[in-house]
């Protein structure tokens, strides 16, 4: 589904990503782990099409479409969803208005009929239950005055509402207590299917106890230095990132 080939990205003259390769197929969950500042968010943002990143080499495609050539909204309508590390507050714009607009834009793009207020409300209520989000939050401006945990929950609520093909979750676990973590993970697990794929970005192993990945990649200083199965996450937890940064000579062949 998602193919990242030899991707090089700069931010303000600084090389951040230095040749990333990643293949994510439908039905798979990939975890990308790495220390702070290694470029995880950069990769997520480039996939979603955020401004301010200069792609100096490589490609990003989804089902054969050149994502780098598309605007953020086109990507979103084709099914790219980014759960933000720091969801922004948008004063005066209610969550409900925002979601209805987004949902109907995506439906229009898919050739589906737009939902009217009644049906939208019905659909939204269903999804609210899944992530246990409070009705009050729905009528408040987008993310405004939300606690850290509420913001993250709101991201997963949107994931449920918009049903994308590819979900990229950037540090969705940070700032969550254990109960919230379970609810959020549940939201993601319910979303998982044979047709879609999930990329989980995190620097703790903790989330991966709940969202079990098929593959784990370790990103250090803009490069994927190691890939493996879910046991790699546990190994990292135990040995720390130093273990992959300064590997024993035999393992240094990535």
């Amino acid at each position: 589904m998602l193919t990242v080939k030899d991707l090089f990205v700069r931010v303000e003259d600084k090389e951040i990503l230095k040749g990333i390769n990643l293949e994510v197929n439908a039905g798979e969950v990939h975890a990308i782990m790495g220390p702070n500042g290694s470029g995880k968010s950069t990769l997520a943002n480039v996939i979603a099409g955020k401004d301010g990143y200069e792609v100096t080499g490589g490609s990003v495609t989804m089902d054969g479409m050149d994502l780098l050539d598309m605007s953020p909204e086109e990507r979103a309508r084709e099914g790219v969803f980014l759960a933000f590390q720091y969801p922004v507050e948008i004063p005066g714009v209610s969550n409900a208005t925002f979601l209805k607009t987004a949902l109907n834009e995506i439906r229009k793009h898919k050739g589906l009929e737009e939902l009217d207020a009644m049906n939208f409300l019905k659909f939204m209520r269903e999804k609210m239950k899944v992530v246990g989000i409070d009705e009050k939050l729905i009528n408040r401006p987008v993310n405004q005055g939300f606690s850290g945990g509420e913001k993250k929950r709101n991201e997963i609520f949107q994931l449920q509402m918009l049903q994308p093909k590819l979900a990229v979750l950037d540090e969705t676990d940070s700032g969550l207590d254990i109960d919230a973590l379970k609810i959020v993970s549940n939201g993601v697990n319910l979303f998982r299917s044979k047709e879609n794929a999930v990329v989980v970005v995190t620097h703790y192993q903790r989330l991966l106890d709940y969202i079990i990945p098929d593959f784990v990649h370790v990103l250090v200083d803009g490069r994927i230095v190691k890939s493996g199965g879910k046991e790699l996450a546990l190994e990292l937890e135990e040995k720390g990132y130093d273990w992959v940064i300064n590997p024993e000579p035999a393992a240094a062949t990535v």
Partner: peptide, 10 residues
């Protein structure tokens, strides 16, 4: 960017 990421035109 947040709004566009959710599919809303610029």
């Amino acid at each position: 960017f947040y709004l566009r990421q959710r599919g809303i035109a610029q």
